[in-house]
Amino acid sequence: MELIIDITLLTFLGLTALAINRIDKLFCIIMLSGIYSLLCASLFVSMDAVDVAFTEAAVGTGIATVLLLSTIGATDTQQRSAPQRPLFALLVVCATGAILVYGTMDMPAFGDPDAPIHHHVAPRYLEMSQQEVGSDNIVTSILSSYRGFDTLGETVVIFTAGLSVVGLIGFRGMQKFGDRQRAAGITQDDMGKHLVLRIVIKMFIPLILLFALYVQFHGDFGPGGGFQAGVIFASGFIFYTLMFGLDAAMRVVSPRTLSYIAALGVLTYGGVGITTLLMGGNFLDYNVLRPDPLQGQHLGIFLIELGVGTTVFSIMVLIFFAFSSRKGLRQ
């Protein structure tokens, strides 16, 4: 039964990818890539990766689609050139694919419990996580405790990406944006007419933020954690911006504040590492934070998840602000 679901979803994924290749209207392509992400998320659930599915659903269908849409809003909505040298490309792709398929012949069968990957470090994580880290969700315990170094790196990468986006396109014309709108006769945002939408969104935004907090603090026991929570929290703000306009959103939280929050998140993460060093442990060894190692782990995971959450949230909102200020410039 599981295999049937798996194969169906994979086939749909393949078809969506082919459609993305064929269609030349960028809007349709972006919608299809949203569908592709949702299919991916369902596939991840069927393969037991609930945390990953959660992230893919929030990031792939939410943030990525919004960013792509605001880019085509500021540039072009139609692909104008025909594919270049398609036959040659097809040949290259087929040859590469054939080599890769040949490579899979030596791989262990799908779901094989005897595959080497399941006999290296994974059994230790599964068996010892509860005694050593004390969190039910092993993904969280690996993410923030066993492999805290990796996650610190990823957080810094996200921070850097946010900085690059702001550095590249920035908020040029930001101050003039309001004037420009008034000059163009757009006193209230176009969306202002949608009474039903406004009311429902006003109702939903607190719920979304509350849900994000739940995801943030419930990561020890169920699927969730800083990454997902940050993205969901950001999507609440993006919702608000789409409905009430960029100016209103920037009055709620300004880009300057957001960049401070982002830096604060990374600092929290690094700071926990330095603190553990100063208290006589290794870098990001939470056991020394409290007299009881399990409590120390709990505190450490709480703090660094908070750091990850705030960084992801503020970087996502910053990137979105930068992109939508672009769209305002063009009007």
Partner: peptide, 12 residues
């Protein structure tokens, strides 16, 4: 959530 959000989406 569905009962509120999906009619709103259709309306919009």
């Amino acid at each position: 959530f569905f009962l509120i959000s999906s009619p709103t989406a259709a309306h919009a």
